[in-house]
Design a binder for these strands. Sequence first.
DNA 1: GCGGAGTAGCGAATTGTTTCGCTAACTTTC
DNA 2: GAAAGTTAGCGAAACAATTCGCTACTCCGC
Lengths: 129, 129
Amino acid sequence: MPRQPSSQPTEVELQILRVLWEQGPSTAREVHNRLSENRDTNYSTTVKMLSVMLEKKLVNRDDSVRPQVFRAARSQQQTQQRMLKDLVHNAYDGSIGSLVLQALSSKRASREDLAEIHRLLHELEGGEK
Amino acid sequence: MPRQPSSQPTEVELQILRVLWEQGPSTAREVHNRLSENRDTNYSTTVKMLSVMLEKKLVNRDDSVRPQVFRAARSQQQTQQRMLKDLVHNAYDGSIGSLVLQALSSKRASREDLAEIHRLLHELEGGEK
DNA sequence: GCGGAGTAGCGAATTGTTTCGCTAACTTTC
DNA sequence: GAAAGTTAGCGAAACAATTCGCTACTCCGC
């Protein structure tokens, strides 16, 4: 019996998506240049990954220009959201709270983040009757 | 050129680990029974997965008793911690704060969780001079 | 100690991921 | 418009994850 496809971007795919999120729509060459700063990888591989990701609809491709331009199909936020949800579901028994608790206690967030979190927290608590 | 192994438990492995965390040290049969409540899987598969996980050191096995008993090699907390760290690193550019913000704003945690988070937050803020 | 039931494990098949060599097509430059 | 460089893409190889059939082993009750 076959196994079910994961639907989540893999590690390498995520690296490519991050490039696209960071520097916006890019050619294969541009993606590759950025990517090869951190990983030792061949241009062919980058192109292939992009074509695989195109099939999975993780990216879009604009064929009307040369060279072709790739875009992330989903925003970073959407993708994070989904991955986070998956993690909570798979590893935290669905409890966001316990994830947050662990995140906060394990390492420290920046001062600004803490303030922001505090603000948001008040809002949430206020929101509840 | 080969690629590097992931080091993180996969989805199925995680399911097995969750069984072990929840019901403690268990035989293959016990793991399987629990597992097959949710997924349609063969006993052979469970045994194989356990043996793969043994090689990866995700679980320990006590051979001195029959049938053999499996234990999770790491606690749920440790595992969560590591997965969380990975997610933050791979998808959130290392910013725990932004993960927490998203977690809190996207869905709501339970009332108790919120209170707990609030308490912890005070502590953290107080802790910083 | 034999037969049946459950346990342990190997090895192969299948699918998914990542890699890159090689070729073709297209662009630019002279 | 030919040579040189760049881009696009296919197909195969290497490896990882998941599945299960089949076999052998262990243990129990008789």
